[in-house]
Amino acid sequence: MKRIIIDREQCDGCLNCNVACISAHQEGSNFYTVNLGSADSQSRNFIKFDPKTGYTPIFCRHCDEPECVLSCMSGAMQKDPVSGHVSYDEAKCAACYMCVMNCPFGVLTPDRQTRTKVIRCDFCEDQPDGPSCVRACPKQAIEVKEVSR
């Protein structure tokens, strides 16, 4: 399957991946018009900073054994047997947030505005050029790699 791989050493914390992610999920916006101040501006990826360890990129792994899928009581999250990615059907989701509780890597988060859905990486499945975070990284620290399952 394809997984987003980040070279932590290359990351200089510019957050272009955050902006690109928000923009990719904000209808009709681009890097210049994206409204970062709106309540629905939530990135699906995170760069954490610690003075000692520097920048730590936290991106959904679409895990081989995804705890989020096991915890989903509505059937909204499914592991696609072909792509290996975890799909998410917002309409099915009942916002119980057991997936948030069960993600061992703290990647999943409720939507800030309505608490009716989960903010999670969709691998930019609708974008012909693949994940927007990858394209936005000026350091080429983020790439999509084929990994074995």
Binding site: K48, T53, R61
Partner: peptide, 18 residues
Amino acid sequence: LEYSDFYAVDPENGEYHY
């Protein structure tokens, strides 16, 4: 505390662990 305080990556497949 956040997960990033325990961050570790499998170099082969890119999965996270602790």
